[in-house]
Amino acid sequence: MLSVEVWRGTDRGRFQTFAVPRRVNQTVLDVVSEIQREQDPTLSYRFACRVGMCGSCAMVVNGRPRWTCRTRVSESASAKGALRLEPLRNFTVVKDLTVEMTQFFDKWRDAHGHFEPGGAPAQDFAVVEPASPQRQAADAAIECIGCGICYSACEVVAWNKDYLGPAALNRAWTLVNDVRDAARDARLDAVTGEAGCQACHTHMSCTTFCPKGLAPTYSIAGLKRTFLLRAVSRAWGGGR
């Protein structure tokens, strides 16, 4: 049997312990679903696709933020078969394992995390060479599923509530590298400052825990570099 401690409540609450049978190839999400269906229907949690695409089932499992649908009990439980499940950190807890994601996605908007076609939309398809450095840089960061694990793992978010966070900055980096985008300068301005890329300490927690294997740290470093190059370019009177 597994001994599963589950957070109950909001930001204030307590752990409740459940005993759940071990099963072959059991995922942490299976465990939570079994508790909710067989033992306590009032348990709140969130999931949708169950196959690592939607990013909605992220939780803190034994102290580490993880996507629970793709995390097997065998790789995450302690040697004694214990699991401790908490809601993602750095989010407001709605109830039990469910967190409020609004602030997280508001920061994507604040980081200008949307494509900007410009005043005069292109008349033809843009040709983007797959091997071009910008396309490669965008490719390396594009597969984010918005699960919030990086945001939960980030110490800077914990210190500075205004910090845009790894996911929003990672998204901004993909757009900075989009040659079709018309808001590069505005986006660089949006990700610069006390809450922007310069606040990152390069702890690399986001990169360590990203379930998709992305490296938001490098995206943030790219934003810092691009900002620096623009500042130098402006200082030399080169404009952009």
Partner: peptide, 11 residues
Amino acid sequence: MNAALYLAQRL
């Protein structure tokens, strides 16, 4: 950190 301070610290 704001941009000017960031530049000053790096330089």
